[in-house]
């Protein structure tokens, strides 16, 4: 599904990613953990194709294809989805209108007609039920005045609507209370299949109790410095990151 080879990326000549190697196969869940500022969101943005970041070395393969030259929307059309750590507001554009546009633009890129309104409505109904979202919520302007938790739940609603192959969830758990966390995790689990993959970026074990990872990676100072199974997350929860920093810096 995703293969990252020796990826180096920088912004404004400041190196942030310093040689990342990562392979994610279909059907897998990977967790990426690590202290603040270690480059987790940067990695997510680079995979999604944010232009401000410059890839200086290495490459990213999506289903075997080098996606370096692809614009962000083209990567999205190929099934890459990013649940943002800080979703932006778009005043005056309703969640529904935004989703309709996103789905139809993706269909257009694949040479398909617009989704019939009837199918769109059905899908909206199903997915909003899955995430226990009040449909009135979908008429509101995208992320405008949403609470932190509402923003995150809305991100996962969009993921459900777009049915991506590769979903990257960047600190989706922050801002969610326990009930919302359960709903969101439950939603992600329902969307999981043997054909898609999920990368979960988080600081906390509690999300990983619900979305159980096959692999856990620790990102520190732009590099993956440790990888392991789901027990690694428990260890980090208990001991923090200092012992890893010491190992690396030693």
């Amino acid at each position: 599904m995703l293969k990252i080879n020796n990826l180096h990326a920088s912004i404004e000549d400041k190196a942030i990613l310093k040689g990342i190697n990562l392979e994610v196969k279909a059907g897998e869940v990977h967790a990426i953990m690590g202290p603040n500022g270690s480059g987790k969101s940067t990695l997510a943005s680079v995979i999604a194709g944010k232009e401000e970041y410059e890839v200086t070395e290495g490459n990213i393969l999506l289903e075997g294809e080098d996606i370096d030259e692809l614009a962000a929307e083209e990567r999205a059309h190929k099934g890459v989805f990013l649940s943002f750590q800080y979703p932006v507001e778009i005043p005056g554009v309703s969640v529904t209108n935004f989703m309709k546009t996103a789905i139809n633009e993706t269909r257009k890129a694949k040479g398909l007609e617009d989704m019939p309104a009837k199918d769109m409505l059905k899908m909206i109904r199903e997915k909003s039920e899955l995430l226990e979202i009040d449909r009135k919520f979908l008429s509101r302007s995208l992320n405008e005045g949403f609470s932190g938790g509402e923003k995150k739940r809305n991100e996962i609603f969009q993921m459900a609507m777009l049915e991506p192959k590769l979903a990257i969830l960047d600190e989706t758990d922050s801002g969610l209370d326990i009930d919302a966390l359960r709903i969101v995790a439950n939603g992600v689990n329902k969307l999981k299949s043997k054909d898609n993959a999920v990368i979960v970026i988080t600081h906390y074990q509690r999300l990983l109790d619900h979305i159980v990872p096959d692999f856990v990676h620790v990102l520190y100072n732009g590099k993956i410095v440790k990888s392991g199974g789901k027990e690694l997350a428990h260890e980090l929860e208990a001991k923090g990151y200092d012992w890893i920093k010491e190992e690396v810096d030693a």
Partner: peptide, 22 residues
């Protein structure tokens, strides 16, 4: 805002139209 739209499969031109219409 543009990147957010791009990430959802909406190209820059369409993203601007969407934001302006909103």
């Amino acid at each position: 805002q543009i990147f957010y739209c791009n990430q959802r499969g909406i190209d820059t031109e369409k993203a601007i139209a969407l934001i302006v219409n909103g």
